[in-house]
Design a protein around this nucleic acid. Sequence first.
DNA 1: CCATGAACAAAATGTTCATTC
DNA 2: GAATGAACATTTTGTTCATGG
Lengths: 119, 119
Amino acid sequence: MAFMIAQRAFIKVYLITMVEKHRGYGYQMLEDLRRDFRSHGYSPPQSEIYRALHELVQQGILYRTKQLKGNDPKVDFQEIVLYHFTPDGAEKAKLYKKQVKTDLDRCLGMLNKAVYDNF
Amino acid sequence: MAFMIAQRAFIKVYLITMVEKHRGYGYQMLEDLRRDFRSHGYSPPQSEIYRALHELVQQGILYRTKQLKGNDPKVDFQEIVLYHFTPDGAEKAKLYKKQVKTDLDRCLGMLNKAVYDNF
DNA sequence: CCATGAACAAAATGTTCATTC
DNA sequence: GAATGAACATTTTGTTCATGG
């Protein structure tokens, strides 16, 4: 077992949750995470979000579709990549999240213990 | 700012606390930590403990003395390395711990948030 | 500037080996 | 097996570059 939870896993559960909420594409999720964790002094690097998304596709949890950002193609030709659950993706995601939850709890236990033991 | 607290820093505060309690030498501290974290599924690698101790010496917080383990040299010639605070080591240690405490709290905040947001 | 992706560089860690008692 | 240390290998990250709209 590793020491702490990996950044990758941490990000992945957030991405899964975002897909559950039908929210968006990579760049958007990146900005959301940065906003939500700014007060914690954490700014996930852009590469990690894309890597995490790619891995979730590899794991057969998500699949991709492409779409033009603006409703009107004449206005905005920017192409974005949307993510959705595969047929059995939701179930796989549930399982993955469960594993990460276990690890999150483990890490919380260790950090709380460290505070208790040393401070 | 990094994502999570580094294993190294985590171990260092434990080592400092152990030196405060006049406990021991590297190998002993390693075993203690392994025992204390076994239930958390974490077993710090031996190399990390020594690396951490060396760094604390580099930082001018600790210095080393050597000693034979058994009281009677005829019985046990095993040489061990003991660690003590340098003259200003205690103060430096206090400062270092303070920094790590801040980071521990930050990490706890992030992990708790993750649990709240995703589960 | 938004958006995606890959390539590359660095750091942190894990594993193994060497040495001594 | 206890004890210390270094070397080496790998993984995980962070940074930078490339491309296009």
